[in-house]
Simulated assay, not measured.
Amino acid sequence: MKVLVTGGAGYVGSFTVRRLLNAGHEVVVVDNLTTGRREAVGACRLHVVDIRDLSAMGAVFEGFRPDAVIHFAALKSSEESLRDISTYFDVNVTGTQNLLAVCARTGVRRFVFSSSCAVYGTPQICPVDESAPARPESPYGETKYLCERMIASYAQATGMRYANLRYFNAAGAADDASLGEHAGPGATQLLPVAVRATLGLPPSLTLRIFGDDYPTPDGTALRDYIHVEDLARAHLQALERLDGEDRCGPVNLGRGHPVSVRELIDVLSDVSGKNPEVVVAPRRPGDPGLSWADPGLALRRFGWSAERDLHHIVRTAWDWHTRVPASLE
């Protein structure tokens, strides 16, 4: 299958590109390299193009004529989106609209979208399944939900098969430390931030926990951490099994196991043999206190379930960041 991957030089995108190539698919990557890295796609064809550039996107599609698209390209910080709403809507929504327009014009038949559990906000019931109402609590979550709705509308009009993959907290790295997440000093993702604090790297030598007054066993927020390799495999399985209308729609991707902030820090301490200095800060706007998945639909629809546990996630992240110090620069 000829597959075009937007954002394929980014974190989850690059792992998915590697899996697609290993499965024998012909792959082209579109990435503006704002956060993506050229070396992450290896020898795969890369077009350095912004998805907001409709003309350039059209030229890429006309030259490649993909059968399918996997769409990762987006801005992805809930916290940042509160400070820069217009840019988030421009990149995430306008960019996706451009992409869908080109897909419709060139006859793309399969579309897999990198959505987010942020569409749920703070779920009323956990584990949360796909029938729960969308109540995003940040502009980022709102953009993802708007994109889901646009994709469904285009699919209805064109007959395109699609999957909106709502994944939870991506983390971890390749077992051999050949690929992983690049998270610089401004990163907000808990695990690389915790690794940075554990190694005593600036800008902060302490690890901040945002809120310890949530209604959870230890007072810290609960999340569903999923290994990036499991996520990449889910994209491949979804793509290859989008052969019926009943398989279209939103699908959760998570382990279905809630993990508190303090639990994650404890596992990192076990893996690293070090204890970061921890301080408690006020809750962060836009962050839900409780969020973990019911991943049952992914198993029923695509035969997918997560295979790697929390210790594996943390160990591979620690190995990656300590073997590749530039990943934290």
Rank of each mutant, 00 (worst) to 15 (best):
S86P: 04
E142C: 12
E130W: 07
Y167Q: 14
T122F: 02
T158P: 15
G42H: 07
S178C: 12
Y145D: 07
P133N: 00
A59Q: 15
T87E: 08
Q124Y: 05
G63E: 12
V119W: 02
A59W: 14
F89L: 12
D53T: 06
R161A: 14
E62G: 13
A173H: 13
A134C: 12
R149M: 08
M160E: 14
G95V: 02
G180E: 04
H47R: 15
C126G: 06
H47T: 13
R161N: 09
E62R: 15
A59D: 15
Y120K: 05
L75E: 06
S115T: 08
R161H: 15
L54I: 11
R83D: 05
G159H: 07
P133E: 05
R161C: 08
S78H: 11
I51L: 10
R161W: 02
S114Y: 05
L46Y: 01
A174H: 09
C103Y: 05
R109W: 01
L165G: 06
I151A: 01
E148G: 07
Y145S: 00
A152H: 09
A157L: 14
L100C: 08
V41P: 10
S138A: 12
T143C: 06
E80T: 14
F111H: 04
F72N: 00
S131H: 10
S116K: 07
S114K: 00
L100I: 07
E142Y: 10
L54N: 06
A40K: 11
A132G: 08
A152L: 03
V108K: 00
G121E: 02
R149F: 00
A177I: 10
R105N: 11
L146E: 13
D129R: 07
A174P: 00
L165A: 03
E62W: 02
L46V: 01
C117D: 15
Q97V: 09
F64Q: 13
V48M: 04
R83L: 14
G159W: 10
A40N: 15
N98D: 00
R37M: 05
R65Q: 10
Q124V: 13
Q97Y: 11
G172I: 09
A173L: 14
V102H: 03
E79C: 10
Y154C: 04
C126E: 10
S55G: 00
A43V: 12
T106S: 09
E148L: 07
Q124L: 13
R166G: 04
S153D: 09
A56I: 02
A157E: 15
D67A: 15
V69K: 01
F168H: 13
G42D: 06
